[in-house]
Design a protein around this nucleic acid. Structure first.
Length: 471
DNA sequence: TCTGGGGTCCTAGGACCC
DNA sequence: TCTGGGGTCCTAGGACCC
């Protein structure tokens, strides 16, 4: 049996802000994406703000309505990244098997460790009783340390909490879940926040917990799949276990097996250490303009900026890509709110308008298109592909968001360089631009066509997107 | 007055090649 | 003129995650 810890930092951006600024401690804090308070959502909410019902992803006016004294802080990705680096360095001391799941979530596997004979002993219900560090479901973990580790899993978790408090900051709390697979460890970690420590020791313990949580509380079941399960008469994991595998496969194709296993606490996926993770598969940015527009010149400028950011990231990673994707999201249409918009998905069968409108749905409509171009890391070449696609999908109506992404990436091979003088000149110029912009900030040097783009103030911070590779 | 932005994965169906 | 099958690439678009 495996031993996997899931470490999740609570209200991450908000607690890092509170750590950095003691005046924010103990107060409801919301971290915003940037300067804009309109047309954006909260990136994080502090523990205190959450008590008012404020949540990550909430619109700002809505959050202020719930909590008028909410302190809005502009997010600082560099700060969060520094903090992430620090806790990852701590975790590496406990095991080499550290999977970076997101900027504030990590899986850590302790190997060569035997749980010994386990017997399930459900102890407390997660919803009715808060519990202190060390509470668990299922059999107690053996106290005997593993061969290669000086501490037992439980002691390891407690030691990690102690060191994070000492070395990252006392205000930065994490919840740790311990279990025999990734999904159950993640579920365990989510049961008690903040500063929780929960063990799900075996499948019997897993069933005990699964029977007491909602379907979408587990990683892998979201809005649409939950809705479809409900339509099949499945409202709990207990119900889900009664559905034969064949029926799930018929409805959800290969994902049916995942659901079948999930309901039984089974998950064979392994912890993938960060140094074994493949390079990125796509690099992209999207941007919501702070007003709806059908001004072609303005849209073009937004796209040019996005494309330059993407191209710069590709060059930093020494990658070239050949697939350019573009999406637009149309202006909000109140009458479409709640409408069924999604088209059937090949492998899952879409039926529902997403409440948040991932692209379409929830009052939004959108369109996207892909195009194949020659492998490139040049902003202009990406732009040319994107612009052609844009003109094809754009129906002339007002848009609120535009996004570009480059995928089908491969390492840039220096031998492939063309010796055309023109190409070399462009590469040289691009290199100089990157050097200057790295030193003085993005868009210090920019193409003439971007000059005068006053309306587009804030652009994505590409730094945050690359956290995984800077550790 | 109305919801951001960074990703990953999956599958169908057609085009195209041998 | 009619005919098969396998493999791979391209494209569309949704669902999921944080």
């Amino acid at each position: 049996m495996r031993t996997i810890l899931h470490i999740d930092f609570n209200s991450y951006f908000a607690t890092v802000e509170q750590q950095a600024n003691p005046r924010l401690r103990g107060k409801p804090v919301g971290v915003t994406g940037g300067d804009r308070f309109k047309r954006t959502v909260l990136g994080a909410a502090s523990v205190e703000a959450k008590k008012f019902g404020v949540k990550t992803g909430m619109r700002i006016p809505e959050a202020l309505k719930l909590c008028p004294r909410l302190i809005l802080v502009k997010g600082d990705s560099y700060k969060y990244l520094e903090s992430t680096k620090r806790f990852l360095n701590i975790l590496k001391d406990y095991s080499p098997y550290v999977e970076v799941f997101s900027i504030d979530e990590v899986f850590l596997e302790l190997r060569n460790f035997s749980w010994g004979p386990v017997r399930s002993q459900p102890q407390k219900c997660p919803r009715s009783l808060p519990f202190a560090a060390g509470s668990f479901w299922g059999a107690p973990l053996p106290a005997t340390p593993a061969k290669n580790y000086p501490l037992s899993p439980l002691e390891t978790a407690l030691d990690i909490k102690r060191r994070i408090s000492e070395e990252v900051g006392e205000w930065v709390k994490c919840s740790i879940g311990i279990s025999y697979n990734r999904r159950m460890a993640k579920l365990a970690g989510s049961l008690y926040k903040p500063d929780g420590l929960v063990v799900i020791a075996d499948e019997e313990g897993a069933r005990f917990i699964l029977d007491r949580v909602e379907l979408d509380e587990i990683c892998g079941i979201g809005f649409a799949i939950k809705k479809r399960l409900n339509n099949m008469g499945v409202f709990s994991f207990k119900d889900l276990r009664k559905v034969p595998l064949e029926a799930l496969l018929a409805s959800f194709k290969s994902y049916g097996k995942v659901l079948f296993d999930l309901s039984r606490g089974i998950d064979e996926t392994s912890v993938l250490p960060f140094y074994e993770k493949e390079e990125v598969k796509s690099v992209g940015h999207r941007y919501t303009i702070d007003h709806d527009t059908k001004d072609l010149a303005e849209i073009k400028q937004v796209l040019l900026k996005l494309v330059e950011l993407i191209a710069k990231r590709l060059r930093t990673k020494k990658l070239v890509g050949k697939t350019v994707s573009i999406w637009v999201r149309n202006a909000f249409k109140p009458h479409l709110r709640g409408e069924v918009i999604a088209k059937p998905v090949a492998h899952l069968g879409g039926e529902f308008a997403h409440p948040r409108g991932e692209l379409g749905g929830g009052g939004f409509q959108g369109a996207g298109m892909q195009a194949t171009i020659a492998f490139t890391d040049s902003g202009m070449e990406i732009f040319n592909g994107a612009w052609k696609s844009f003109l094809k999908i754009w129906d002339g109506s007002e848009i609120r968001m535009v996004g570009v992404s480059v995928s089908n990436l491969k390492p840039k091979n220096p031998e492939n360089l063309t010796f055309l003088e023109d190409k070399l000149r462009i590469e040289k110029l691009t290199k100089i631009m990157d050097e200057v912009n790295n030193r003085y900030g993005d868009f210090t040097l920019q193409r003439g066509v971007l000059l005068g783009s006053r309306k587009v103030k804030r652009m994505p911070n590409p730094f945050l997107a690359d956290y995984r590779f800077k550790i």
